[in-house]
Structure formats: structure tokens, C-alpha cells
């Protein structure tokens, strides 16, 4: 807690420091962000001709053009409003083919690595489900469902979690007060709480981005973000590309297309051919994640435990009765 305050205080002390150097308040930087990160060339590329001296966090004095300077605070605000708006004219959806999943956990690992999550935080979670003792077990990867009627967003008292125009639900962990109401609101246990300091810090020159939720902050909530940062670059979410079995398909419903990187299908045809469904449709949250039932499986369900370590095996002593 103390450290965080220091971090925030550093913000204002830096401001006064820059003032002392005779540089206007326009060149305010957040602590931990070097002058290089401030430099973002204008689209017009116009040069004012006047240069400004800035001190980088590693103590170097650099000279940059006045027009090239963007205050980090402004960049952060811009990034946040971009993240809140989402991509225009898109409606993202995921299709998970349960027939292909064998609990390889590559999606979980890629997600943890990509979002700098502690090992005990899983945004993507793998369940071993069995609806009834007379029905079959199956592996069930569960990302955030990014519902169209998201209960978590409805109950948030401060608007820290929000639904974007492209259907993605994100969390702004600089807004989150940690009341955990969203966690009880979500019927799919998709959210995780930072019970202690996750010890993730921003790298030099980075700004917090709700689209990656890096860095995680103690006392706030995190969850799967559909890799919104990747989507901005027309790249697939990390779990999709990491899956060796091509279990996870992703795409834009406006284009009626989903892909796992190798294969591309028409979403509507895939739903028709494979009897796609959504988990617990009756709850009415309208998830953006669809499942294909585990018909004609590629692997026996037991295969999922073959390579698993003891900790993972321990989780699945009994398949869930749902």
C-alpha cells in the first residue's frame, strides 16, 4: 500500500521537479516512464523547431522537439477512453470445441504469460465437468464469457468494469475499489481478486492499459480480456494461438467468421453443423462464448490427466456435477 502511494506521490514530485527545470506543466510524466515514452510523433509530423530538455528516469538528459511531447497522463487518459470505446463495428465471439480439448493447459500458460499473472491466477480455467453420473465427462475451458447482459457490469458501483461496443467486458483496475460485487454477480466464476500485491510492475516506458490489465493491482479484480490489445493489431487472442489442438475459435460475428488460426469457418454454419450452444443459457446473461458439444472426440477424456502434474490432477478428483 505504502509503495503504491509512493508511486502516486512520485507523480507530483516529478511535476515540481520539471517545473524547477523551467519546463511547463505540459511535460508532466508519471513515475517510471522515461522521456522516450513521451515521444509520440504527431501524424502531421510537424516540428515546432523549439526543443525541450527532459530528464529520463535513468538520469539522462535528452532533447526532444516540443511538438513531439505528449504528457503521459494525457496518453493514459487517451488509452483509457480508447479501451472503453472498443473497436468500432465489431462484435467478437469465441467458439470452444469441446471435442478437441485434452487439458493441455497451453491456453492457461499463454494467458498467464501474456498478462503477467501470478501462477495461481487463472483467467482461463479448465474444468472437468460431468453433468450427471450417467452422462460423460468432458473438459471445459472457461474464459470470461463477455456477456451481452453482463451482471458484473450491472452491479459495479463505480463503473470500473464496463461493456464496450465490440462486446468485450474489461476492468479498469485504476478505478476498481475492490468491493467484489462483480465476483458474486458473475455466475461463471470468471473473475479473480488480487488478494495480495501481485508484484507486477510496469516496464520502463509502459503505461497502464485496461486492455491488458497490466500491471495487476492489489485489492482489485482481474479477468480475461479477450486479449483486446491483440485484437487492435488484428491478432488472435493468446489462448487461441497457443492451443495445440485448435480448440478455441475466435472471430467477429459481424463477419460471421471464426478461426483458430489454422481453420476458418462460417460461424453460423459451425453452429448449425455442430449444434453449438452457450453455457447456462437460462441465466440470460447472453455470453459471447459458444461451445461445441464433445461429440466424436479427438481424445479420450482421461488423456487430459496423462501429462498433468500432481497439483493439477488433485483438482479433478471428482468431476463437477453440473
Amino acid at each position: 500500500m505504502k509503495e503504491k502511494e509512493d508511486n502516486e506521490n512520485a507523480h507530483s514530485s516529478r511535476r515540481s521537479f520539471l517545473r524547477k527545470m523551467g519546463i511547463g506543466a505540459g511535460a508532466v510524466t508519471l513515475a517510471g516512464i522515461g522521456a522516450t515514452s513521451l515521444v509520440k510523433s504527431n501524424e502531421s509530423g510537424s516540428q515546432s523547431g523549439t526543443t525541450i530538455k527532459l530528464l529520463t528516469t535513468d538520469g539522462q538528459l535528452v532533447e526532444v522537439d516540443k511538438n513531439d511531447i505528449r504528457p503521459a497522463k494525457e496518453l493514459l487518459a487517451e488509452k483509457k477512453s480508447e479501451a472503453r470505446a472498443g473497436l468500432p463495428n465489431r462484435k467478437f465471439a469465441m467458439v470452444i470445441d469441446l471435442a478437441r480439448c485434452k487439458n493441455a493447459r497451453k491456453c492457461v500458460e499463454a494467458c498467464q504469460e501474456g498478462h503477467k499473472l501470478p501462477k495461481d491466477h487463472e483467467w482461463m480455467k479448465l474444468y472437468l465437468l460431468q453433468d450427471d453420473e450417467h452422462t460423460a465427462k468432458y473438459w471445459f475451458p472457461r474464459p470470461c464469457f463477455h456477456c451481452d447482459k453482463p451482471m458484473c457490469v450491472s452491479v459495479c458501483p463505480v463503473g470500473a468494469t464496463f461493456k464496450r461496443q465490440d462486446g468485450i467486458v474489461l476492468v479498469d483496475n485504476q478505478r476498481c475499489i475492490g468491493c467484489k460485487f462483480c465476483m458474486t454477480g458473475c455466475p461463471f466464476s470468471a473473475r479473480v481478486f488480487n488478494w495480495k500485491d501481485p508484484e507486477v510492475r510496469l516496464e520502463e516506458g509502459q503505461i497502464y492499459d485496461p486492455e491488458t490489465n497490466i500491471p495487476a493491482v492489489e485489492g482489485t479484480v482481474g479477468k480475461c480480456v479477450f486479449c483486446a490489445d491483440n485484437l487492435r493489431r488484428n491478432e488472435l487472442p493468446r489462448c487461441v494461438t497457443a492451443c495445440p489442438m485448435g480448440v478455441i475459435f475466435f472471430g467477429d460475428l459481424m463477419e460471421d467468421t471464426v478461426t483458430n488460426g489454422n481453420e476458418t469457418f462460417r460461424f453460423s454454419k459451425l453452429m448449425y453443423d455442430r449444434a453449438g450452444y452457450r453455457f447456462r443459457e437460462e441465466l440470460g446473461t447472453l455470453p459471447s462464448v459458444y461451445y461445441l458439444p464433445p461429440t466424436q472426440r479427438m481424445f479420450p477424456v482421461e488423456r487430459g490427466l496423462d501429462d498433468a502434474d500432481e497439483n493439477i490432477k488433485g483438482r479433478y478428483k471428482s468431476a463437477g456435477p453440473r
Binding site: R90, N234, E235, L236, F250, G251, D252, E255, T257, T259, G261, T264, F265, R266
Partner: peptide, 8 residues
């Protein structure tokens, strides 16, 4: 047909 991530 090219789509956002791949070709359909």
C-alpha cells in the same frame, strides 16, 4: 473472403 484474422 478476407476477414479480420484470416481468410474465410
Amino acid at each position: 473472403v478476407p476477414r479480420m484474422f484470416s481468410q474465410l
